[in-house]
């Protein structure tokens, strides 16, 4: 923890020095940004815009994880499914995020559904690839045991499949969260009337650097908080059984 605080403090000092040297409206110093942030929080503007973005992040993330897990599992377990869907996957992987976003807005309309779907589809192939790997690595001996003892489908899913997929799900959640929020900002910039991406877009046209920096920093902080207070504890819980006696 301490080295991390030290490294962040250094970063802020470097920023302050650079700002002092530049003396430019285009690089405000940390104090100015801090004051701007406080004002934005007090007015309720920043919490509102962050909540809009966070809602989209959660929505697209959930859809991508759910669909990606189902598709990845199916492809990992069945060779025929894999052969069939693999080329779709390759197309999706190589599709530029922007193209997906534009298609979604054109075909579905400039609305919330299109925004969330566009982000989910961008994240989807990564989940599929990772979960497929996990499904291929499922232990056949344990499968056989579950069959012999007549595990119900639910029991198999909960006690056999998910614990084995957990490390793969955790890996794709981690990379997923950061990919998703970055794409959500683009989606908001292009076609939403609110959210951090929208604010950044209007601040850009006004060259309002203090605003851009305060939103960017607050959102990074929020994602760090989610990562360390939600994702990491969940991961630790899923890996409890790995502890070994000293």
């Amino acid at each position: 923890m301490l080295p991390r605080i030290f490294s962040l403090a250094t970063l802020i000092v470097v920023w302050a020095v650079a700002a002092a040297l530049a003396q430019s409206r285009l690089l405000p110093d940390p104090l100015t940004v801090g004051r701007a942030t406080l004002a934005e929080i007090r007015s309720g503007e920043l919490p509102f815009q962050m909540a809009c973005t966070l809602g989209r992040v959660i929505g697209s993330f959930a859809i991508a994880m759910l669909l990606g897990t189902i598709a990845g599992y199916a492809m990992g377990r069945s060779k025929a499914t894999d052969r069939f869907a693999d080329s779709w996957l390759i197309v999706l992987i190589n599709m530029p995020a922007l193209v997906v976003i534009i298609f979604a807005y054109i075909w579905i309309g400039l609305n919330e559904t299109a925004a969330i779907l566009a982000v989910a589809i961008n994240k989807l192939p990564n989940v599929v690839v990772v979960v497929r790997e996990g499904a291929r690595a499922l232990d056949p001996e344990i499968d056989e045991m579950a069959k012999a003892f007549q595990f119900t489908a639910f029991k198999r899913l909960r006690h056999v499949v998910i614990p084995q997929l957990a490390p793969y799900l955790a890996a794709s959640s981690r990379s997923g969260l950061s990919i998703v929020w970055k794409i959500v900002l683009v989606v908001e910039l292009i076609g939403r009337p609110n959210g951090v991406g929208f604010v950044l877009g209007s601040a850009f046209s006004l060259f309002d650097m203090a605003r851009i920096l305060s939103y960017a920093i607050c959102f990074i902080l929020l994602m760090l908080v989610i990562e360390s207070f939600l994702v990491q504890p969940l991961e630790r819980r899923a890996n409890r059984w790995r502890r070994r006696p000293a």
């Binding site: 001996e141 344990i142 056989e144 045991m145 012999a148 003892f149 006690h159 056999v160 614990p163």
Partner: peptide, 9 residues
């Protein structure tokens, strides 16, 4: 059934 390996979860 008791498999040749314990096969516990």
């Amino acid at each position: 059934i008791v498999f040749q390996e314990p096969r516990l979860l």
